[in-house]
């Protein structure tokens, strides 16, 4: 099992349970020592990020290292999430890499995503093993091979 510094948790944010299920499998198969948290709405994801990083309140789980974010969600969508995420206190965002995931074939979405410094990268669904391993390697430091 590989272990990365500060990569303790992968947050899967998608309203579709089956997509989260598949993505959990992919992350599990990557042989990386990391917790996986599935969340089905952008609102809950924001709550998770703000709570888990708060020193005064007990953290419900490990701090997210990578957030895989769906664009098309009911109510608050991926873009709305980013707008709220922007406003978060720096300590909640420290060491978090947001990856946007989409089924959209619209190049405007990729363009739009690249205009936000909060979005590390933009990927087509479904997530695959190689893409996940690359993101871990690119943004986190290996502690143990």
């Amino acid at each position: 099992m590989k272990k990365y510094k500060d990569l303790d948790c992968v947050l899967l944010v998608d309203d579709d349970i089956s997509t989260n299920f598949i993505h959990r499998r992919i992350v599990q198969n990557a042989q990386i020592d990391v917790a996986i948290k599935e969340i089905t709405s952008a609102k809950e994801a924001l709550d998770y990020l703000t709570n888990s990083g708060d020193d005064e309140e007990p953290a419900p789980g490990p701090t997210a290292g990578i957030v895989f974010l769906d664009i098309n969600m009911p109510g608050m969508n991926g873009w709305d999430f980013i707008a709220e995420y922007k406003k978060l206190d720096e300590r909640h965002k420290a060491r978090i890499v947001v990856v946007m995931l989409t089924t959209s074939l619209n190049p405007d979405d990729a363009q739009h995503a690249s205009s936000f410094s909060e979005i590390a990268t933009y990927l087509q669904k479904p997530l695959n093993l190689e893409a996940f391993a690359n993101i871990a390697d690119q943004y986190f430091q290996v502690l143990k091979e």
Binding site: D15, I17, T40, S41, P74, G75
Partner: peptide, 20 residues
């Protein structure tokens, strides 16, 4: 309905709540 979704509700396939 939250103020910011007042227009969105009339768009095809746009939902405000999770299926669950």
């Amino acid at each position: 309905i939250d103020e910011r979704y007042k227009e969105k509700v009339f768009i095809m396939f746009q939902r405000l709540h999770n299926v669950t």
